[in-house]
């Protein structure tokens, strides 16, 4: 019944002497919410960056939706259907919220410089479609009321949501969220959880990195645990929770 959407095998990534990812392999199934946890410095963000094309792995295999994405550039990865957010929010601060989402549509649209200059019918229609879709997405994540605000002037919670809307604008099959709940209060976290459920039910697969283990346990269908660049466990939350290696990794980290 499991239908693999993303599959990596034997991924290695080294930074000088540091072996950040050591033979990591995992499979994300279509339609699930997949979580990635681990102590600080375990290699979560490195893996995340490898999966979104920001880092080029040294060795391994990476296929997504039947396409080979090993060592592909970020824009190719996005085109293939993986979109992401950033842990430390990277919006285009001086653009409005709407414009930010419109940039997200870039990869699914094609008007060139000539079209922009001539403003032919097709270009204008596409531009309108971009704008309409962007508005729709802002409403979808619940910030339609701040469409014309500059992104940098938005509240933290709104910025997080805007990042999700911008990523959704690329029509992803897999949406990868890097610590989306970081810095949020319980109320905001709850809203965010609802949003993620909504995104999943619309048919988008989700990959999450999160420190909030409790949140991950309730939200994720399956979880992988990284420690020192290696995957030490993978499975449904209950399994993972009771895995002795996971407990050791977390307690060990706490003792160290």
């Amino acid at each position: 019944m499991a239908d693999a959407l993303l599959k990596i095998e034997g991924i290695h990534k080294r930074f000088g002497g540091l072996h950040a990812l050591n033979d990591v392999g995992l499979t994300i199934n279509r339609g699930e919410i997949y979580g990635l946890i681990g102590p600080n410095g375990a290699g979560k963000t490195t893996l995340f960056n490898v999966l979104t094309g920001l880092y080029q792995p040294d060795e391994g295999k990476f296929t997504f939706n039947g396409q080979d994405l090993f060592r592909q550039k970020p824009h190719v990865v996005v085109k293939a259907g993986i979109a992401r957010t950033f842990q430390n929010i990277r919006l285009f601060g001086e653009m409005t919220a709407l414009e930010n989402v419109m940039v997200g549509r870039h990869v699914r649209t094609k008007a060139g410089a000539l079209g922009a200059i001539l403003r032919d019918r097709a270009t204008m229609a596409e531009e309108k479609a971009i704008r309409d879709r962007a508005r729709e997405l802002l409403n979808y994540v619940g910030i339609g009321n701040v469409a014309n605000e500059r992104a940098r002037n938005l509240s933290y919670g709104h910025q997080r949501r805007l990042e999700i809307a911008r990523a959704l604008a690329t029509d992803p099959t897999l949406l990868a969220l890097d610590e989306p709940a970081a810095g949020m209060n319980p109320r905001e976290t709850e809203d965010l959880q609802a949003l993620m459920e909504k995104v999943r039910s619309s048919g988008v697969t989700l990959l999450l990195i999160e420190h909030d283990v409790k949140l991950m346990m309730t939200l994720c269908d399956r979880i992988a645990v990284l420690d020192y660049g290696k995957k030490i466990a993978e499975g449904v939350p209950q399994e993972v929770k009771s895995n002795p290696r996971v407990i050791e990794a977390y307690l060990g980290a706490a003792h160290a």
Binding site: T52, P74, F92, V103
Partner: peptide, 24 residues
């Protein structure tokens, strides 16, 4: 235009722009 927005995105944050699918 779409191109103009891409330029501004590039100016503001090229890493984010690339991660949003723009071919820098």
């Amino acid at each position: 235009s779409r191109i103009g927005r891409a330029w501004v995105a590039l100016r503001e944050d090229d890493v984010a722009a690339n991660a949003m699918g723009l071919n820098i």
